[in-house]
Design a protein around this nucleic acid. Structure first.
Length: 89
DNA sequence: CAAACTATTCAGC
DNA sequence: GCTGAATAGTTTG
């Protein structure tokens, strides 16, 4: 577990429910604005696939990006969170 | 320690 | 919109 990882996970956990952030955003929060790729790799190898909302991270282009379990799962999770948010309101 | 890998991003056309 | 190049950290040998 490296400091960068910690920062990335923390930043990830700060993302509001039903919201999505870009890899660059995470990299910036992690203190390495140009390490967006490293962030993605960490998320891929992250020890907690579900504990950390790694599915809330997308590309800066607005695309889903990638997901260790498959982009489909990611889409579903995001939609699910959207519904949860609705219920919360 | 060095090389390879990567769920990306930016600039140019 | 797509292609090519660049970046930065983790992981593996």
């Amino acid at each position: 577990m490296t400091a960068f990882e910690k920062k990335v996970y923390k930043a990830l956990l700060t993302i509001p429910l039903g919201e999505v952030r870009t890899y660059k955003w995470l990299a910036e929060k992690a203190g390495r604005p140009r390490a967006y790729r490293a962030v993605g790799q960490i998320l891929k190898k992250n020890p907690w696939p579900l504990i950390v909302p790694c599915h809330r991270v997308i590309e800066s282009s607005g695309k889903l990006g990638g997901y260790a379990w498959g982009k489909k799962r990611k889409e579903k999770l995001l939609d699910l969170e959207r519904q949860i948010k609705k219920i919360m309101v």
